[in-house]
Simulated scan of single mutants.
Amino acid sequence: MVDVLGHLGMALIWLAPVWFFTDTPKTALAIVSTGFWFGMLPDVDLVISNQIVGIHHHGVFHTVLAVAIFAAIIGPLWGLVVKKLLGGTTWFSPDAQKRATAIGVIVVFVTGLAHLFADILSAPDVSTRIEPLWPIHKGPIAFIDVLWYQSVWATWALFLTGLVINGVLWYRYNN
Results as ranks from 00 to 15, higher is better:
residue 1 M to F: 01
residue 1 M to G: 01
residue 2 V to S: 05
residue 4 V to M: 06
residue 4 V to L: 11
residue 6 G to M: 08
residue 7 H to N: 08
residue 8 L to I: 13
residue 9 G to S: 09
residue 12 L to N: 01
residue 14 W to K: 03
residue 16 A to K: 09
residue 17 P to C: 08
residue 17 P to A: 09
residue 20 F to C: 09
residue 21 F to V: 15
residue 21 F to I: 15
residue 23 D to S: 04
residue 24 T to G: 12
residue 25 P to Y: 02
residue 25 P to L: 06
residue 27 T to N: 07
residue 28 A to P: 02
residue 29 L to R: 11
residue 31 I to D: 03
residue 32 V to I: 15
residue 35 G to I: 09
residue 37 W to E: 07
residue 37 W to M: 15
residue 38 F to K: 09
residue 41 L to V: 15
residue 41 L to S: 07
residue 41 L to T: 12
residue 43 D to K: 00
residue 44 V to Y: 03
residue 45 D to Y: 04
residue 45 D to F: 03
residue 47 V to G: 09
residue 47 V to H: 09
residue 47 V to A: 14
residue 48 I to R: 06
residue 50 N to P: 02
residue 50 N to H: 14
residue 54 G to Y: 01
residue 56 H to L: 08
residue 56 H to S: 14
residue 58 H to F: 00
residue 58 H to C: 02
residue 60 V to Q: 07
residue 60 V to G: 06
residue 61 F to H: 05
residue 62 H to N: 03
residue 63 T to Q: 00
residue 64 V to P: 01
residue 65 L to W: 09
residue 68 A to Y: 03
residue 69 I to R: 02
residue 71 A to T: 05
residue 72 A to Y: 04
residue 72 A to R: 07
residue 73 I to R: 04
residue 73 I to F: 05
residue 73 I to C: 10
residue 73 I to M: 06
residue 74 I to Y: 08
residue 74 I to A: 15
residue 75 G to K: 12
residue 80 L to F: 11
residue 85 L to R: 14
residue 90 T to A: 13
residue 93 S to T: 08
residue 94 P to A: 07
residue 94 P to F: 08
residue 96 A to W: 04
residue 97 Q to W: 05
residue 98 K to Y: 05
residue 99 R to N: 14
residue 103 I to D: 00
residue 106 I to D: 02
residue 107 V to H: 06
residue 109 F to M: 12
residue 110 V to N: 02
residue 112 G to I: 08
residue 113 L to S: 06
residue 113 L to C: 14
residue 114 A to W: 01
residue 119 D to F: 00
residue 119 D to G: 01
residue 119 D to K: 00
residue 120 I to P: 00
residue 121 L to F: 03
residue 122 S to G: 15
residue 125 D to S: 13
residue 125 D to G: 14
residue 127 S to M: 14
residue 128 T to P: 02
residue 129 R to T: 14
residue 132 P to L: 08
residue 132 P to Q: 10
residue 133 L to E: 00
residue 134 W to M: 08
residue 137 H to M: 05
residue 139 G to S: 01
residue 139 G to A: 01
residue 142 A to K: 01
residue 143 F to V: 06
residue 144 I to S: 03
residue 146 V to P: 04
residue 148 W to A: 14
residue 150 Q to V: 00
residue 152 V to A: 10
residue 154 A to R: 02
residue 155 T to P: 08
residue 156 W to C: 04
residue 158 L to Y: 08
residue 159 F to Y: 12
residue 159 F to S: 04
residue 159 F to T: 03
residue 160 L to Y: 04
residue 161 T to E: 04
residue 162 G to K: 03
residue 164 V to N: 02
residue 165 I to W: 08
residue 165 I to Y: 04
residue 168 V to A: 11
residue 168 V to N: 03
residue 170 W to R: 07
residue 170 W to T: 11
residue 170 W to K: 09
residue 171 Y to E: 10
residue 172 R to E: 10
residue 173 Y to C: 04
residue 175 N to L: 13
